Amino acid sequence: MRAFLLFLLLLALLALVCSRGWRPPDRYDPWAPLDLRAPPDLFLHYKLGRLGADPRACRATLAQAGARFEPLPDRRGPGACGWTDAVRLRGTGEALLAHPAVVTCPLAASLVLLDRQVLQPAARELYGGPVARIDHVGGYACRNLYGRAAAPLSHHARAAAIDLTGFALADGRRLRIADDWNGQGRAAAFLHRVHNRACEVVGMVLGPDYNLEHHSHFHVEATGWGYCR
């Protein structure tokens, strides 16, 4: 009985506080708008998931972070391929993409976070300078998994995945996953750190240790709750 009365008292206190306009800081509020410039919080993946249901808010979030992008009209076909709420992403606000990529807006937001929270800190710590360019082999591609006729449709066919192949530093050095992943120097340390920390800010990352098909790239998706292999 005492526990129930205490529970009612706490509810009444919470209702009183909220009625006077108080709200928790954004990092403790799962319903607060996502700020891609802020450090990740406990509700990051939930907030990223909400962006998929609100295209206007997603594009505003990208713009606030300084990302370079162009909204695209929805596309249907061929077949089950196409995209909804996609952008042509040119830069994250920190680094440029080697060439524009068609990705869903939530995936673009995830790439902004990956660059700001993982790539740039790792590059500055290990190399003393920033990442200037993100190399990739495309986002949208109308194909099945691994290009096999009998396989399910790839997430690339919905612009919901992108394959990153390496990174160029501001001093001109290039770090390539195909060449440097299995090395012993700073390049390998950088790539492994990026892979290991990526799922703090994106939904899924599959790298060279996942299977042979990923030996040359990081497969990145926005959806999921932090799965790195």
Rank of each mutant, 00 (worst) to 15 (best):
L153Y: 05
G139N: 12
A187K: 10
N182E: 13
P152E: 05
N196Q: 13
A198N: 04
F190P: 04
Y146R: 15
R143C: 06
G138M: 11
G139Y: 08
R193S: 08
G139W: 08
A188Q: 03
G147L: 04
N182I: 00
L169W: 05
N182Q: 14
A189W: 02
T165R: 07
R173D: 08
E200M: 04
R193L: 06
A160S: 15
G172H: 09
F167Y: 13
N196T: 06
A132H: 06
Y146H: 15
A188T: 03
G203F: 00
H156V: 00
A160R: 10
H192N: 01
L169C: 03
V194T: 10
P152K: 10
F190C: 07
A198T: 09
L191M: 03
P152S: 08
R173P: 02
D163G: 06
H155G: 05
R193M: 01
D135W: 11
N182F: 12
G203W: 00
G138N: 11
R174I: 07
I134L: 13
E200W: 03
L164I: 15
I162K: 01
L191N: 03
W181F: 13
H136W: 10
G166I: 04
L175E: 09
P152C: 08
Y140R: 09
R176Q: 05
L169T: 02
A170C: 03
L191I: 02
A168V: 07
A168L: 01
H195F: 13
A168D: 11
G139L: 09
D171C: 09
A150P: 06
D135F: 10
R174K: 08
A141K: 14
A170D: 13
V137K: 13
D180L: 05
R143M: 13
F190A: 06
A160C: 05
A178Y: 09
E200A: 13
N144A: 11
L191E: 04
A159G: 09
H155L: 13
M204V: 12
G139Q: 10
A141V: 09
R176N: 01
G147R: 01
H136Y: 10
F190G: 06
I134Q: 07
G147S: 04
C199Y: 06
V201H: 05
H136C: 12
E200F: 01
R173K: 11
C199N: 04
G147T: 01
I134K: 05
A178I: 12
N144R: 15
M204Y: 07
Y146L: 15
A141T: 10
G139D: 08
A188W: 03
A178L: 15
H155Y: 12
H136I: 12
A132R: 14
A149W: 08
A132E: 14
I134A: 08
G166L: 06
V194G: 09
G185L: 07
G166W: 04
P152W: 09
Q184I: 02
I134G: 07
D179W: 12
H156P: 02
L153F: 02
R186I: 00
H192L: 07
R143K: 15
